[in-house]
Amino acid sequence: MMEYVRAFLAGGLVCALAQLAIDRGKWTPAGVAAALVILGVLLGFSGVYDRFAAWAGAGATMPLSGFGYFLAKGVMVEPRPSGLVETGAAVFRFAGALFAFIVAGSFFAALICKPKG
């Protein structure tokens, strides 16, 4: 039961901080999204996000910072990518399921939701 509470608190904290950056910091939503991905990559390479993800579980991996973490993890898992194409392939090998879920989820959300127009 506590892992659900930790996931909720961690994910909620990340999302609340992002919303504060939009509301109070006058950041654009796209800027906050990019900052979260970049932060996830940087913290993933430094090893800090590993400890956070171990504690928070899905609460750390579901926000956009978790997406950046998975991108960094894909590069770190590959033994020694020797070029841009191999580095990109390493990212997709590790985070391919996440990409597929995002594309499929977006597709079905577009089918269900009615656009404003």
Rank of each mutant, 00 (worst) to 15 (best):
M62C: 09
M1A: 11
P29I: 00
G57N: 00
A72R: 14
K26P: 00
A16M: 09
K116C: 02
P81A: 08
I102Y: 10
L17F: 08
F67I: 05
A18D: 04
G105C: 01
A100Q: 02
I102H: 04
T28F: 05
D50P: 02
F101L: 13
G40L: 05
V32F: 06
S82H: 14
L36F: 02
A60G: 13
R51V: 11
Y49W: 15
A30Y: 14
T61F: 04
A100I: 08
Q19F: 07
F45E: 12
G11D: 07
G40A: 06
S65W: 02
F45Q: 10
G83K: 07
Y69N: 13
C15H: 03
M76F: 09
F94W: 09
P29V: 00
E3C: 00
P63F: 08
L71S: 10
S65D: 03
S82K: 15
K116P: 03
W55M: 04
R51F: 08
V14C: 02
A109G: 12
S46V: 01
I38C: 04
K26F: 07
R6P: 10
A100E: 03
I38Y: 05
Y4F: 14
F45T: 12
L39F: 15
A104T: 06
A34Q: 06
K114R: 14
M2N: 11
A7Q: 06
K116L: 12
